[in-house]
Structure formats: C-alpha cells, structure tokens
C-alpha cells in the first residue's frame, strides 16, 4: 500500500484508521465498484471532510465504517477504531461499538429517529444499552445532552416525539443521540443538506463547538464546497470511489492540484462570476459497473494523455502531507 498522504502526520495514534477500503455491490447481473481503495487516518479532535458528488462512494464509505451495508455488499480492507480492528467483527460486537465508540448522524433525522418513541426515551435507551445504567440516570444524561446541543427548553423537548419538532431541532436531537455515549468518532452523512441556510450554519457551528468540548474526531461527508470549507481541517476529494486529492482545507481550496478538484471549485457558483460563463466539467460521472482502466476521470479531463488511460495512476505526496492522484502531478508538484 503506497503512502497516500492521509496517514496521521504526528506521532499520537489515530482514533480511526482506514486502509485500502473497497466496497463492491455484487448481485445477479450487476457488479458495482462503489469504493475502490480508500485510506485515511484521523486523530482526536480532527475533522476530515469527504467531498464528492452523488455516486462518488462517499456515503457508502461511511456506511461501511458503521457496518451498515446490506448483505450482498463485499467490504474489504482494514479499519482500526482506537487501535482495534473492527472490520469482520461478529455482529454482536459491532452492535456494541455502534452508538458507542463510533456513531453516525444522517441527512434525514426523520428517517433515523424512531417515530413512536420520545426523544428522551431514544437517547436514554441508547445509554442504558451501552452502559447498563438505570433509566433515571440515563434520562438525566439525556437532559444534559439536549442542553449541550442547545435545544431550548430541554425538559419539555425530552418528552417530544420527532414529528413534533422542526427540522433543525430534529437534527440537534439526532446529534445528541449520536453523542450519548461519548463516541471517539462521529460520522456525519450530509447532516446539513436538507436544512435551510440559516439553520445549516447553526448546526455547523454547533458541531465545531461540540468537537472542541468533547474532542471526538469527525468524518464529514458533503457535496457542498462551502460547507466543507466551514467545517473541515482536512478535505479528501472522492471521485468514482477513489480519493483523487487530499490535503488541508486551505491547500484544497486555494491550490487544488487535481483537474477534478479544480473543475469542482470552478463550477461552484458564486456572485463574482456574474455575467461570465461558468467553467464546467463536461460529461457525467463514470458508470461504477464498468470503470475505465487508469484514471476514472480521464474521459472528462481536459489534460488527458495516453498515460492516463493505461495502468495505475501515480500518487504524489507532498512534504506537507497533501496527496494528489494524477499523471500530471508528477510534473507540476515538486516531488
């Protein structure tokens, strides 16, 4: 496995390390290669954003980490959580980790929360399950969690059902639920995509603040470059199930190296572009059931040359830890 630059740069051990993760969906007549060798490591208190468009494999990667993929999904690679390998653990062991050491928040809290239990009952239930404390203590903890995620009048909200809350409140309640057992890793799957802008920024600020207080690592998945810029320490850009580029938020936003990242940033509309034509990436993402050999972005890339279509694409890592997977990078990035 080549060093692709996402390994932790300091000496302390990462809370989450993922090595060469692959996910294939194999069924009767389809074989979809959703994730094709993703590797990264994450320290305490760090936020890594996986940035990508629909079908890039970013959500599938998260679900693979949580062990939430359907039975026909073939997951390979290595996943270490707090130094312990978790891929291939028996279902019961995995269930203990889920909601405990590793937990997840989703785009649609309405679908992830159980409609027939109150918010308080759901949070308390998770605490009782994982820590075996009695109900009253668990309810007290649930109250504290609702306060922590800044839900107004938390005593009353504890007794609310999910449908009695607004979208922003539900998302806060789900964050409280995810943090119930102080996880060391929080996985966030587009948690702000369904929210209004004024609510989205509140949730992003809340996550940043909670991370400072509690020190968990966050893997944040989004398609929105602006959201990535607000929340992340590092960004990894995913295309067709592979990281094509990664680096600090500043490196990615200011000096993108990969043509796909450049195109993605250029096609992200902002006001200054008024009157001028938008730069676009031509074409559509590749079919994951029949990926081309070589670089998956080659058919849409303006710099494509013969070397892109054959064999493995070189991975260039800069001294700062930034990584880019591109034939051109061998010339533009000083090795």
């Amino acid at each position: 496995m080549p060093d692709i630059g996402l390994a932790a740069t300091t000496t302390d051990t990462p809370v989450l390390q993922v090595d060469d993760l692959t996910v294939r969906f194999k069924r009767r007549n389809t074989d979809v290669a959703a994730v094709n060798g993703a590797s990264f490591a994450l320290r305490r208190g760090e936020t890594l954003t996986i940035l990508g468009e629909s079908g890039s494999g970013k959500s599938v990667s998260l679900k693979a980490l949580m062990g939430l993929l359907p039975g026909y999904a073939q997951v390979h690679g290595k996943i270490w959580l707090d130094g312990r390998e978790i891929l291939g653990l028996p279902a019961a062991e995995l269930a203990k980790l889920r909601g405990g050491a590793i937990s997840m928040i989703f785009q649609e809290p309405m679908a992830a929360l159980d409609p027939v239990y109150t918010i308080g009952e759901q949070i308390a239930e998770t605490i009782v399950q994982h820590e075996g404390v009695d109900r009253r203590t668990a309810m007290q903890r649930a109250l504290g969690l609702l306060e922590r995620v800044k839900i107004p009048s938390p005593e009353r909200r504890l007794k609310n059902y999910p449908h009695e809350m607004s979208g922003g409140m539900r998302q806060r309640a789900m964050i409280a639920l995810a943090l119930a057992c102080s996880p060391s890793v929080l996985l966030a799957d587009e948690p702000t995509t369904a929210l209004d802008v004024t609510v989205q920024i509140q949730v992003l600020l809340l996550l940043r603040q909670l991370q400072q207080e509690l020190g968990m690592a966050i893997v944040f998945v989004t398609h929105d470059v602006g959201v990535a810029a607000e929340i992340s320490d590092r960004i990894a850009v995913m295309y067709a199930g592979r990281f094509v580029e990664s680096g600090t938020t500043r490196e990615i936003m200011r000096h993108p190296q990969h043509p796909y990242t450049q195109g993605l940033l250029a096609s992200t509309v902002h006001g200054a572009m008024r009157g001028s034509k938008l730069e676009t990436i031509p074409g559509t993402p590749p079919n994951l059931a029949s990926l081309p050999p070589g670089c998956a972005f080659a058919p849409r890339c303006r710099y494509t040359r013969d070397a892109c279509r054959t064999g493995d694409v070189p991975v260039i890592t800069s001294p700062t830890g930034a990584m880019v997977r591109c034939v051109r990078a061998t010339e533009t990035v000083p090795a």
Binding site: T30, A34, S54, S59, N287
Partner: peptide
Amino acid sequence: MSDATIDTAQRVLPAADA
C-alpha cells in the same frame, strides 16, 4: 439504512453515458 445504500448503488448506473 440498507435501503438507502441499495439506492445509491442503483442510482449510479443510469448516470453513465447511455
């Protein structure tokens, strides 16, 4: 949850050039 995953897997199929 797994439903959503199946969805992702299927949705990418027609995205390719027809």
